[in-house]
Design a protein around this nucleic acid. Sequence first.
DNA 1: CATTCACGTTGTACTATACAACCACCTGAA
DNA 2: TTCAGGTGGTTGTATAGTACAACGTGAATG
Lengths: 146, 146
Amino acid sequence: MPPNRDESVETIQRELTAFARRARATAARMHPELSLVSFTLLAHLADQQGCRATDLAAHYLLDKSTVSRQVAALEKLGFVERRPDPDDQRVQVLHPTSLGYETLASVAASRRAVFRERLADWSQEDLARFAEYLERYGRTSVRPES
Amino acid sequence: MPPNRDESVETIQRELTAFARRARATAARMHPELSLVSFTLLAHLADQQGCRATDLAAHYLLDKSTVSRQVAALEKLGFVERRPDPDDQRVQVLHPTSLGYETLASVAASRRAVFRERLADWSQEDLARFAEYLERYGRTSVRPES
DNA sequence: CATTCACGTTGTACTATACAACCACCTGAA
DNA sequence: TTCAGGTGGTTGTATAGTACAACGTGAATG
């Protein structure tokens, strides 16, 4: 008998929750030099070719104080630099340094390797469908920001 | 053109990571009285009809000190009680109290409602497949414990 | 201009977590 | 039968990540 709607929802909920519980620790074990949060923020900076702290906070639903400290840590590690915004003296535009780009690339590669291995025995079709479902889920669970 | 293997793996990685980043905060907003971790531990106790702290630690890959404190908090809130193990005086078998069961039920219901709404426009078939993929992923990413 | 708003930092507090040291108990081998 | 080493659990200490509140400084607008 196929599972009913509620059973499927229950499973999705349980598995996602379990994943969330493990994610941080796993990430920390994988690459101690860049936590999950730092990695994500740095990746966003690289992706956006730089942005403001406020943008990071809005995008990730974090308090600005949290972002401020995370960015300070990234700067201290030499992964991020701040550039003044000529149009607004309050603003500091954040950019990855070249060290930041390098570290990001290496961490991203090792993360990719772990995921790839973990998914090694999945068929191409299953991978594509799983990816599609996750994207769809992600779109519905995050409210869009400007 | 269908995505290739690497693109799918990349997407899965990105979406799961994004989810992990949001999960705790979301859970905390949903039901402040029971954090994601507490909820999970309590749910496991209910599911197992009671178990030892060590079992919880092994199952969730948490340090026993972490479990000890979480359990202490749950006990303080009146959600969990400790029963002596007649066969081994070191052991305290943990059980949800009736208040624990009630709270768990109510939190689970509200979580279920959120998830159900979020997944409302998914077809039954897609839900079932998504659930199956998540379970499969979960099995491969956690090393099995006895 | 004066008020209000936006950006960012800092002080404070809390939660989740790990590791190490410890105590109490259990178990098996000399 | 005793004791050495293992197991279950707690507590001390430290760290990361987070939020909220208060603040300073600069921008924008009535």
